[in-house]
Design a protein around this nucleic acid. Structure first.
Lengths: 110, 110
DNA sequence: ATTTTTTTACTACAAAGTAGTATTTAGTCT
DNA sequence: AGACTAAATACTACTTTGTAGTAAAAAAAT
């Protein structure tokens, strides 16, 4: 997919980083998606997607506090970039436009 | 992507078939997407996507009137199935849920 | 020192997206 | 009739996204 378009899962991940503003790292994002969308997220799938979104400029990352007393690798926090916001807006507008045009008879929006 | 989830383009195509209710065939769908979303659609890409949506049960097709005086292959009209509607609703709800949760500060929805 | 927990990284494969070309069908033109 | 053109769908090959599984890192707990 070239350009600004986001894949299905990419969009969900990007939105969730926004929802968690400031506290978005791998595991938190996974949990948030699972809770809100009642859908299993494989952590590997998520990590790959985060990195892809970053390399395309939709996300930026920053390592968390390493003085934190906690096991595990340092957390990597993600944040939506201005370009990422643009991509989200584009995808929202595309869909809203089509839903608006949908004859009620055909797809009864409940 | 397993289950009911739709890819980005798949969703747009499925919605557009709904928008065109009754008159949705390849070229008409292409034109409709291009007009509404100001985005080029390669007809080959569209045909492949229509067939995939059909084979997954989101769309069904029916050959158009062959007595029509018109050149070209008979048109293939598409229609969204009940299962297709369910997929669209699922994807709308997922996104609406996340957009709703998005702190206004982070992503100013205009 | 070894184990356990929390987390990110890597790798390989499946599904979806895209473009280009081919084929079918039938009207139009000479 | 034969060649040409137009309107469609079909096929094929390739790229990008999605997913799962496994490995590795870091540091506390034992």
């Amino acid at each position: 997919m070239k350009g600004i378009q986001l894949g299905e899962f990419e969009e969900i991940v990007l939105l969730t980083v926004g929802v968690l503003h400031g506290t978005a790292y791998g595991v938190a994002i996974k949990d948030e998606i699972e809770q809100r969308l009642h859908r299993e997220v494989a952590i590997g799938a998520l990590q790959v997607t985060l990195r892809r979104l970053e390399s395309k400029g939709f996300l930026k990352s920053k390592q968390g506090d390493t003085n934190e007393t906690r096991r595990g690798r340092p957390k990597l926090f993600f944040e939506v970039t201005a370009y990422g916001k643009k991509a989200l807006e584009y995808s929202k507008e595309s869909r809203d436009e089509l839903w608006k045009a949908l004859p009620k008879l055909v797809l009864k929006l409940k």
